[in-house]
Each structure stands twice: as structure tokens, then as C-alpha cells.
Design a protein around this nucleic acid. Structure first.
Lengths: 343, 343
DNA sequence: TGTCAACACGAAACCGTTTTCGTAAGGTTT
DNA sequence: AAACCTTACGAAAACGGTTTCGTGTTGACA
């Protein structure tokens, strides 16, 4: 239970000044080689390690970035955190993780906590509730304190900062086009309420693809799933309310697609013969479902890495720069059994 | 781009001393009410917020706990992090997350980084490589610096500290017993190499259950999946190498079970009629597979919460206490379609 | 032998707080 | 009127480092 040893302790023990010890340990040639070695040996012996907090105070840098994420138990988000952690670590930063649980209040609290100087920069994916409320005042605080911010995935153009998003519109477009390519006519999309930009954009791409081929968008085939009540029931009820079942379904996330698959199986529809299904987020469900699910892969890990790179670049920039980046990560369509072409 | 305002700035502006400002803002009655109000108003106007780093230095507490976890993109672990974050936040602590990626070296590095005074305590789930190597010297450093440590899920009794684990043996026992209850005779278990304690313990429970009923453990039915090569291939090859297929399979994690299900379906075995399957970790795969998978639910969230509570309790304990806790969290068996009883 | 640079180290300021202690001014006791 | 308490504030130390600057001792050069 030895208390941690400080510079002062070493100085006293060796009867030199703390400045000498500091310089010696930092290999300054202001100190003679013999003394340097002696001090180093002593420090080593007692496992001296500089107090990080003291360093942070002096350097005015914490070497920590904060992350506020709507939830962690979520394949896409956990991939992002993974990417963040890797990039941050590679550049000698640490990561402080906060969860908003999709709540505006928690997001605000977290932001306040992080903006008090605990971190050098913040990465945020906006909570659904915040998006719904449309209130982004809590982000101003960061600006006041001059703490760099990067929004990822769930962004808002009411906040001035760097942003990085998945090419959601392109992904919706890509998925829809592919389904039409394999001959599907009644393509249904299970989306989110419009304030969740990712859902809205994916729907937009969906519409665009259909219209581009001269088709007409049937609004009854676009269902906005409300995530406040039972998902299964909503989707089941919706699908069965259609006079004619779709021959293809796009779920804007893994779960919607998995539920659609389950409902289809219950109705004894064959997948992909009767109905093709595509999901988003290439998580475990997609890989291990039967049939294996075709998905839009969103490269969450890469997004985490790049968001962090953007943030660190901005942190390390000396003078503030009002030109904010907007980066779009394109998606890939991973075709598996749930959409195999009908010949 | 205003620089953050400090106590000193306020003091200078108001022509009082910094101590007066500090006291006023902390509502000390050493300062007259009028001056107090004046200073508070001023501070408020300029959005004064105390510099956390300075406070940390003075108080010798960072209010941060470090977490080293083998991976994040993993249902069980992300649940744990979620629980950690919640409990920590509720007790005014922040969470720094580090990923070992199952690597001994990264774990060591992370530990060294955290033990330099950045955090008040550390939560670790040991990397597989470390377990395999059996080298736990890097944990000594924490002891040297007197930084509390709690090991969770993947623990080692070579490290002296509080520990919290899932009742893995009981879980294996419970699953096996249940399968025998519904009449299964050839129960196979897909486990991990023995150095991964969770796998070893689950296998132990499996054996115990069988022996308790006077059965004999058939070693051919216990397969240790090596996670360094293709999982699917290994499990497929193993299962098909058996002269007689099992009528029940226990996968010690979600993925092993999902793969087993997939292999069984390919062989046109009916689930659960021909073969019942039970997995661990009640994640998305289990919920959305067809048939829905029976699982052992491990309460990861709760484990995260409790591990954090143990850690914080120890941090807040004034005098060191060599009596370490060992807490076991019991599991539940969630029965779904993959094991429904044959009547 | 006086001047000056190089060497090797210490003193002190600094980062931004809190907190202990000291003290001047005024009021209350006796 | 002397002694003592409050009240209301400031000075300074402390947390644990880094860094600038100053300075005493050498040795070299003129």
C-alpha cells in the first residue's frame, strides 16, 4: 500500500531540486549524465510515474475525447465505438463514453458534464428525442467553451460543426434498385418517423429509385414504425393490413428486417421466392438468420475511425477554422439468401 | 472564441482575491451576502465553470473509472458496458473504455495507461490471450499504485481483487438438466478451449448434470471450438463427424448455437423435434432466429452495474481492506421454440 | 589575470482550484 | 477604555508537474 511517489519525493531523497529531477527524467542535457542516470535509476526502482492530472493541468490538454451515443447495445453503434476507440488510441487519446439512451435530457446532461473541461473534444450521435424536439441549444455550450465537436450518423444542420454520415439516401436507392433489378414490383419499406434523419433519407432514396424508373411511389408501402410501442405487433399488423402483400421488403434496420422475415415466415411466404427482404446494419442477426439476410453494410467501424480522425485533426489545429467538413460514407450491398434472384 | 474564464479572471475584474471568488461561488458565509451575489451574477453571466482538471489535481480524485474489455461489438459485453455506464453515471463517475481485442499486449498497455493516475479504479474482463498465457503480472502495477480493481466475467484467481462472474457452472448444469428433462439423451456441448474459464465452467456444469443422473459423460460430445479458425467449418465438420447426431446441442455462446442451428437446418434436421438447441447470451440472434432460440440469459447489464458498485464501494472505502468479494450472478433459462418439449 | 561562455543545477512562476490561516475593522463585553 | 469576538476579506500553501530564468563554478581564451 505504498502511496504513489512524486517528483518531490525523489528530489528530497536524492537531495536535489524537483526541477532537476524533472529535467533528468525528461532527459534534458541541462543535467549531467551521471546525475541523470542516477535519478532515472532511482525513479525506476520506485516505479515513478508522472501524475497525469498534474500534466493535464499544465498542458491544458486532457488527451481524452468524449463520446455521446444513443445506446451501446446495438450492433452499428458498438461498431462505431470500436472504431472510435481504435483511432483514438492510435493517436494517444482516451475515450470517455456516455449514453444518452435516446433522451434529450440525458444528452444535455452529458454534454454539460463533458464541456466542463474534462475532454478535448466531443463526438455525438444525436438522440431521437432531441431530433424530435428539434432543440439543439445544448450544443452551443461547446462552442462557447471552444470545444471541438463532430456529429456522426444522426446529425442536424442546425449545429455548426464537422459531420459524418452514412450515405443513407444512396443506400435506400441502392437497395431499391437492386430489388427492382431482380424483378420486384411491390417493394415495401419499413422506415422510422421522419425526424430520424437516417430513416427519412433511406426512404428518400427508395422513392428516388422508383421514380427514376418511371414508377409511382405507393404511399401505403412506406410504413413508419414507431419505436415507442411493440415493434413486432406494429409490423405484423401493418403488413397484414395490406390487401396485397409486397414481394419485397426493406427494413431500415436489422430488427425491422428480422421482424418482417419472421412475419413472412409465419404467413408461410417463401423467402426470397414470395418476398425478398433486405436489412440495414450487417450484424449477427443478418448473418445467422435463415435464410441469411441481404443487407446494406454501413461500415460503422470506419465511420467511428473517421469521425475520430476529423475530431482530432480539429483539436490539433491551432487556429479555429469555420469551414466545417461534411463527410459521407458510402454503403455496400451484401447479397445473401433473402433476396436471391428468381430465375 | 472566448477563452474559458477562470477564477483569476473574475477576481481581477471584480478587484477581489481569487480566494474570495472561490468562497463566494461555493456559498461560503465567510463572504458577505452582497458580494456573494455580485460575484455569482458575474460568474453566471460569463458562464464560468470550474476547471475540472484543476479540481481533480486538488482533490486527488478523477471521478473516472477505467474499463478494459476484450471487445465491444459483442452483445454480452456491450450490455455490461451499458450497465457500467449507468451505475457509474448514477454515482457521478465517468467511464473510460479501452478495448484489449483479446490481446495480452494491448491489455497490458491499457492497464499501464490507466494506472498512471487517470482513473480512480479499473474494471477488467481478461483477454483470451492473457488467460492462455496465464501471465497476470501486469495487474500487479495497479496494486502498487493502490488503484482498486474489479475483475468481471473473465477472471483469474491469481489476481487478488474483487471479482464478479456469471454462475457459469450452474448455467451449464441448468441447461443440461432441462434438456434431459425434455427427454434428450445425446446432448452435445460446443465449448471453448479450457483456458477460457467461462467455457470450462459451463462444461463442468454439463458434466455434473449428466453424472448426477447416473449418466456417463461421452467425451466425444464435448467439442472445444478454437476461435482462431473458421467457426462454421469447425462446427460443421465436428457435428458431421459424429456417427450419430446429437438430439440436443448446447452452444456456450450465441454464435456457436446459431451456427449449430444453421448446420442442423442444412442437414434437414428438424428443430426442436430432431435436435434441440440452447445458446448463451440472450442477444438479437436468439430472439430473431427461426425457430427462436432458447438461451441462458446472463444478465450482462446487471453484472456491469454490480461490478461498478463493487468498484465504487472500494474506491470510497478509506482504509484498504484485504477481504475481497467474489460475487456470482445466477442465470435464467429462457425457453423458446428451439427446445420445445416433444410430447 | 581578467572576460566570457559553457555547464550544471536551483529558485520560482505557472496551470486553476480549495482551504487554512492571518488580520483589519468594527462591535460587544466588562 | 481595555479586552475580546465577529465579520469579511486577502495571502499563501497545496495538489504535482514543467519551464524560464538566474547563478555559481569551470575552463578557455586573450
Amino acid at each position: 500500500m505504498k502511496a504513489k511517489i512524486t517528483l518531490k519525493d525523489i528530489a528530497k531523497e536524492l537531495e536535489v531540486s524537483t526541477s532537476t529531477v524533472s529535467k533528468a527524467l525528461n532527459d534534458s542535457n541541462e543535467i549531467s549524465i551521471e546525475l541523470r542516470e542516477k535519478i532515472k535509476a532511482f525513479a525506476d526502482f520506485y516505479h515513478y510515474r508522472p501524475n497525469m492530472t498534474a500534466l493535464k493541468l499544465r498542458n491544458k490538454k486532457t488527451m481524452i475525447i468524449g463520446v455521446i451515443i444513443p445506446e451501446i447495445v446495438h450492433h452499428f453503434f458498438s461498431e462505431i465505438i470500436s472504431g472510435i476507440e481504435k483511432m483514438a488510441n492510435g493517436r494517444n487519446y482516451n475515450v470517455m463514453v456516455c449514453v444518452s439512451s435516446e433522451s434529450y435530457e440525458k444528452e444535455k446532461l452529458n454534454l454539460a458534464m463533458l464541456s466542463n473541461g474534462s475532454v478535448d473534444g466531443v463526438l455525438v450521435s444525436i438522440a431521437k428525442e432531441t431530433l424530435e424536439l428539434g432543440n439543439y441549444d445544448h450544443f452551443k455550450e461547446l462552442e462557447d467553451y471552444n470545444i471541438p465537436l463532430v456529429l456522426f450518423d444522426r446529425v442536424s444542420n442546425e449545429v455548426n460543426c464537422d459531420k459524418i454520415v452514412v450515405d443513407d439516401e444512396g443506400a435506400g436507392y441502392k437497395a431499391t434498385n437492386y430489388l427492382m433489378d431482380i424483378g420486384r414490383k411491390r417493394i415495401c419499406i419499413l422506415s422510422t418517423p421522419d425526424h430520424v434523419n437516417v430513416g427519412a433519407l433511406r426512404s428518400l432514396g427508395y422513392k428516388k429509385a422508383i421514380e427514376e424508373r418511371g414508377g409511382e411511389v405507393d404511399d401505403r408501402l412506406l410504413f413508419r414504425v414507431n419505436d415507442k410501442t411493440d415493434l413486432y405487433l406494429q409490423i405484423q399488423t401493418y403488413l397484414n393490413s395490406l390487401e396485397v402483400w409486397p414481394d419485397a421488403i426493406i427494413g431500415v434496420n436489422e430488427i425491422f428486417a428480422a421482424i418482417a422475415m419472421k412475419v413472412a415466415k409465419e404467413k408461410k411466404y417463401k423467402i426470397p421466392e414470395d418476398v425478398a427482404i433486405i436489412g440495414f446494419t450487417d450484424g449477427l442477426i443478418s448473418q445467422f438468420s435463415t435464410p441469411a439476410m441481404s443487407t446494406i453494410v454501413q461500415h460503422g467501424f470506419m465511420m467511428g475511425e473517421q469521425a475520430t480522425a476529423m475530431l482530432l485533426d480539429r483539436i490539433q489545429k491551432k487556429e479555429p477554422d469555420m469551414n466545417y467538413d461534411y463527410k459521407v460514407i458510402s454503403t455496400d450491398l451484401k447479397i445473401r439468401e433473402s433476396t436471391e434472384k428468381i430465375e
